[in-house]
Design a protein around this nucleic acid. Sequence first.
DNA 1: CCGGCAAAAACTGCATGCAGAAATAGCATC
DNA 2: GATGCTATTTCTGCATGCAGTTTTTGCCGG
Lengths: 225, 225
Amino acid sequence: MPSLPAHPSPQASASPQSLAETVYEAILERILRGTRPPGTVLSAVRWAEKLEVSRTPVHEALRMLSADGLVENPAGRRAQVARFTCDDLWEIFEMRRILEGPAAQLAAGRMDGRQLAPLRAESDLLARTEEADGWMRRWSDFDEHFHAAVAAGCGNGRLRRDIGRYRLVHRGFNRIATDYASLQSAHAEHVEILNALEAGDGRAARAAMECHIAHWQRYFVERFR
Amino acid sequence: MPSLPAHPSPQASASPQSLAETVYEAILERILRGTRPPGTVLSAVRWAEKLEVSRTPVHEALRMLSADGLVENPAGRRAQVARFTCDDLWEIFEMRRILEGPAAQLAAGRMDGRQLAPLRAESDLLARTEEADGWMRRWSDFDEHFHAAVAAGCGNGRLRRDIGRYRLVHRGFNRIATDYASLQSAHAEHVEILNALEAGDGRAARAAMECHIAHWQRYFVERFR
DNA sequence: CCGGCAAAAACTGCATGCAGAAATAGCATC
DNA sequence: GATGCTATTTCTGCATGCAGTTTTTGCCGG
């Protein structure tokens, strides 16, 4: 089961993206899935063999992951999946609050019905879903869609990109168990933000978003120990 | 006139950092100095010849500069120094405001006399300097030191890193002429922030910092056309 | 059974070769 | 002179070789 879409052999169309990016995504997926827990050594040679490419694109992919903060790549020594301390967790949530608060404020003045309606619909659907009926999974999807939509709706490409980076890192240690009650209260906060966005109230959207992330910051840091 | 400190020949001690980083700094310096204006093509082959290294570390350096946003590196085509539009300028200042505002707030509760005293001293020295007596140069140094110190003092390493990135990009198009009067009023704003930091008033520090950066945002965007 | 040490294996970073793509130059045509 | 096409040159991305270093392995003394 080769991980790359296909052998780099002549058959099949040339990859639309660089090999390094393909490798990046392959490794990223393993890290996010938890197949490679923090501290796991990521040898360029091994990945090159596994993915059937040379070491060069693997090396670049590891550099990219290092830039994302998901991999520690000390010069000369082997790369390994980043290990997060409690302080790291705190910092990452602080960054999310700093970035996503203003993003929500900006988005309130920019997002229109075409962008908000799908979120409202998905939110309503979630409200009508039973706990046993894949609610957790749907919540997770909505969380992803919601935060991504706000980041996209803020109108600042750099802000959007940076938010995406920290959400990615966040997903890197997503292994902390989350209980139904907490997710439900988080959803209530999502709805509150959504209300503010629909009303075009930037201040309220920002306050609600910052409050939302601060809650999760406390929740996660608490459970991290 | 080789730009690298020395040939990679056995003589001299091994470089403390990787070749790629050395190349990165060499190219970065040219970009920041304006020797390579926006749109300039950055051929890996040429730089490899010029710096007397192989293409591999140059390639990595260009990737790094691309991650910083100083270089556009479209896959397959040649890299070139990033060209900034008016919107880019606006976005970059918006990011600085979003990041440095909270940083000032955090720093107010964390920076102590040992960190603040040198800034105050440098600020006072600037106030006693005449315009003809290298005032502009000293202002520029102080600006650099001041914002870097606040970023360092916020206690969040990721926030500090991100602020540094955007200040770097900022320096990339520093070519906009600045007049004495504007710099003086900017310095007054710096002093206001410094007062708030010394008083430990986070709210005030944040407000003053956001106001300061918003002023410069308008000033720069205005002059950009 | 564990810590220290030397030999061996494996790996990283850099240099370089090569295939295919992009940029450029040259040339014909309008 | 401007425009479009083609041939040539140049470059990028990837594969691979090599030197130096790190990491692992194997062994010994405690």
